[in-house]
C-alpha cells in the first residue's frame, strides 16, 4: 500500500487531502446548528448599528480590541459577564479579535456614553491620558454607508432567517422588535431617525449639521454600534 502510494501522485494527493480534511469534519461540522442559536436578550443589529459595525470593520478596530470576555474573575470584574455562544448569533463576521492592544469591547455599551466616544475618537489621549490609540478624525467627515448595511440586513433576513420586524424575547420577559425598512427609502429614514437620537448627545456642530441635512457621518454610526454592545 505504501509503495503504491509513493508512486501515484494522484492517490497520494487524495490521501493527503483525507488526512488533513479529517480534523475539520470532526471538529467543526457537528456543532454548527447548536452554536448558532441566539440566547434570550440577543437582538439583530438595526440598520444604523450595522452601518457602524461596517465602520468598525473598515478601520480594523478588531486588530486591537477583542470582543470576547473569558470566564476569569479578572475579566468579569473588568468587562462584565463572560461571553456566551448565543450572544454572537447575529455576528457575521465574528469580531472576537486576537490581540488586546486596547481593552475588550464586548460590553462597552454598558459603561461608556455617546459623549465619551465622541471625545475619545477625536483625541483618545485627552480622555485616557497615555493612550496609544490613534485619533479617528475622518469619521466625523466621512459618511456611513447605510445602503450597504440595509443590503446586508435584507441578505441575512432572507438567507439565514434573522428575525427583523419580529418580536425577539428580552431578558426581562418583554419583547423587542428590530425594524428593517421595506425599501431603501424607508431604511434610510429609519437609520436617520436613529442617528438623530445619537447626535442629540453629541457636541460636534458639523456632525449635528450633517445629520440635520440628512447625512449620517461614520462617527454617529459607530457610536450607535458601540452603544448596542451590551
Amino acid at each position: 500500500m505504501f509503495h503504491w502510494l509513493e508512486k501515484h501522485p494522484f492517490f497520494f494527493a487524495v490521501g493527503v487531502f483525507v488526512t488533513i480534511a479529517f480534523a475539520g469534519l470532526i471538529e467543526i461540522l457537528p456543532n454548527f446548528a447548536q452554536a448558532s442559536r441566539p440566547v434570550i436578550g440577543t437582538a439583530p443589529y438595526s440598520t444604523l448599528e450595522l452601518a457602524g459595525r461596517h465602520v468598525y470593520i473598515k478601520n480594523s478596530c478588531n486588530a486591537c480590541h477583542s470582543q470576547l470576555v473569558r470566564p476569569f474573575k479578572s475579566e468579569t470584574d473588568r468587562y462584565g459577564h463572560y461571553s456566551l455562544s448565543g450572544e454572537y448569533a447575529y455576528d457575521r463576521p465574528f469580531l472576537w479579535g486576537s490581540k488586546r492592544t486596547g481593552p475588550d469591547l464586548m460590553r462597552v455599551g454598558n459603561y461608556r456614553t455617546t459623549d465619551w466616544h465622541e471625545n475619545h475618537m477625536k483625541d483618545p489621549a485627552s480622555v485616557v491620558p497615555g493612550s496609544i490609540m490613534p485619533a479617528y478624525k475622518w469619521m466625523f467627515t466621512n459618511n456611513a454607508d447605510v445602503d450597504t448595511a440595509y443590503a446586508e440586513q435584507l441578505t441575512v433576513a432572507n438567507a439565514f432567517s434573522v428575525p427583523y420586524n419580529e418580536p425577539v424575547p428580552m431578558k426581562d420577559g418583554s419583547t423587542k422588535i428590530v425594524k428593517m425598512g421595506k425599501n431603501l427609502a424607508e431604511a434610510r429614514a429609519l437609520a436617520l431617525a436613529e442617528a438623530k437620537e445619537i447626535v442629540a448627545d453629541m457636541k460636534d456642530q458639523d456632525v449635528k449639521d450633517a445629520v440635520a441635512r440628512g447625512e449620517i457621518p461614520e462617527i454617529v454610526a459607530i457610536i450607535a454600534y458601540m452603544n448596542s454592545l451590551k
Binding site: E27, I28, N31, F32, A35, S36, S85, G86, E87, Y88, A89, Y90, D91, R92, P93, F94, W96, E152, T155, V156, F160
Partner: peptide, 12 residues
C-alpha cells in the same frame, strides 16, 4: 456577508 455566524465563524 459571511455564511457563518459568531462562534461558528470563529471556529472556521
Amino acid at each position: 456577508v459571511s455564511m457563518y455566524a459568531g462562534t461558528n465563524d470563529a471556529l472556521v
